[in-house]
Simulated scan of single mutants.
Amino acid sequence: MAKHIHSDQRYVTGLVNNDTVIINEIYKRCAGKIKSWIVFNNGSEDDAADVFQEALMDVYRQAKYKSLELTCPFEPYILLICKRKWLNEIKKRSILPVTNQEEDLLHIGEDTFANADELENQEAQSKLFFNAFEKLGERCKEIISWSMKGEAQEKVAEALGVTYGYLRKKKSECMASLIKMVQSNKTEE
């Protein structure tokens, strides 16, 4: 089956070509959401900037050396990469004692192809996620989309015109359905 390349591939091409207009558009569309999400999840604005920069570099390397072809919208794709990076960072920080910054210098020369392979794996998982997401009902899609923006649950409930309790219950049901679909798709492959 031929892959359907998403029209957002222009963002990937823009990154590779160092197209300032496209890169600015990526920042305008995504940086605020990523910052909100990371700050909401115990990070700082500097952490958010670092994670976003790393994610863009991963996409750049994946496109340049591995011919990344986007089959889903760019924004959720980059958000997913940033969320994974931040969750990994939280894990690292909670295991490693806080030391001076010299230790961080050891990680600078990490193999970029290992990162590219990891990104390819993330892309496959992302594809499973988006395929399952598309099969959800409209209300579930709406609730999950709002929730992924990093808004406070109370604000999301208000925006959707539902009670906070209903939103939490419905979000939980929707996420359970989504996870179930993703897992059943994994076993089919």
Rank of each mutant, 00 (worst) to 15 (best):
M1Y: 08
M1T: 09
A2R: 11
K3H: 06
H4S: 11
H6C: 07
S7L: 10
V12P: 00
L15D: 01
V16G: 02
N18Y: 09
D19A: 07
T20V: 13
T20Y: 00
T20F: 01
V21L: 12
V21A: 14
V21P: 01
I26T: 02
K28F: 11
C30V: 09
A31W: 05
K33S: 12
I34P: 01
S36F: 05
W37N: 11
V39H: 00
N41C: 05
S44H: 07
S44Q: 04
E45V: 13
D46V: 08
F52I: 07
A55Y: 07
L56Q: 14
M57W: 07
D58W: 12
Y60H: 14
R61M: 13
R61H: 13
Q62R: 03
K64C: 01
K64S: 06
K64L: 09
K64W: 01
Y65N: 09
Y65W: 10
K66M: 05
K66P: 00
T71C: 09
F74M: 05
F74E: 02
Y77A: 06
I78Q: 02
L79V: 11
C82Q: 04
C82V: 05
R84P: 00
R84C: 07
W86Q: 01
K91G: 06
K91P: 00
R93F: 04
S94R: 14
I95Y: 11
P97L: 06
T99H: 05
N100M: 04
Q101V: 05
L105M: 10
L106C: 04
H107K: 13
H107A: 11
G109E: 13
G109A: 10
E110P: 00
E110M: 07
A114M: 06
A114S: 10
A116F: 05
D117E: 12
D117S: 08
L119D: 02
N121C: 03
A124Y: 12
A124D: 05
A124I: 12
S126I: 07
L128V: 03
N131Y: 06
N131R: 11
A132S: 15
A132E: 03
A132H: 07
E134W: 04
E134D: 14
K135G: 03
R139G: 01
C140R: 03
E142V: 01
I143E: 13
I144T: 08
S145K: 10
W146Q: 14
S147R: 04
M148R: 10
E151I: 05
A152D: 14
A152Y: 11
V156G: 02
G161R: 09
Y164S: 11
L167E: 10
R168F: 02
K169W: 04
M175G: 01
I179P: 00
K180V: 01
M181W: 04
V182E: 02
S184Q: 14
N185L: 14
E188N: 11
